[in-house]
């Protein structure tokens, strides 16, 4: 086979042209969330190096991370974790169990469980502002 560095139309066009089966969306999302989480683990490791600079440096940084903007970003990040984790289990079931037969049903569970746990985490993380909101309504 002749060596072709790129598909004739370019890789982006070729990828966009694919028929998007629910399974292809799952595959695309798995890659995007995986790259996102990998980028995040680098940020995470770097951010925690302030622990080597003593209590003040670390506690000041944590104050910044407790601000509303960071809390919301932290919550949104959990959606990547949930999707990637549950779809990853789906991949293992397809590869190592009889998952190929039920992969669409498993995908429904992946999305369903993900949404439930995402909302649950939101309630846990923002329980104080939520409680304050309801208190102010009375």
């Amino acid at each position: 086979m002749a060596y072709q560095p790129k598909p004739p139309d370019g890789w982006l066009k070729t990828n966009l042209r694919y028929y998007k089966h629910p399974g292809s969306w799952a595959w695309i999302l798995h890659r995007i969330t995986g790259l996102g989480l990998t980028a995040y683990i680098f940020v995470h490791i770097y951010a925690l190096t302030t622990l080597t600079q003593g209590p003040k440096a670390f506690d000041d940084e944590m104050k910044l991370f407790s601000t509303p903007v960071f809390k919301v970003l932290e919550w949104l990040l959990f959606s990547l974790v949930l999707y990637h984790a549950f779809n990853g289990v789906r991949i293992v079931l397809v590869d190592w169990a009889n998952g190929a037969k039920y992969h669409k049903k498993i995908l429904t569970v992946v999305y369903g469980l993900g949404v439930v746990l995402f909302i649950g985490m939101g309630i846990l993380m923002f329980r104080e502002p939520i409680a304050n909101m309801f208190a102010s309504l009375k």
Binding site: F58, K71, G88, V92, W96, M121
Partner: peptide, 29 residues
């Protein structure tokens, strides 16, 4: 796949322990 299965438990657990409550365990002490 093996590391992935391990991380499913560990990362989701890590989130509930470390990130669900901003007041828990985020000080130097």
């Amino acid at each position: 796949r093996i590391t992935g299965l391990l991380l499913v438990i560990v990362v989701i657990g890590h989130y509930f322990v470390m990130h669900a409550d901003p007041a828990s365990g985020h000080t130097y002490a």
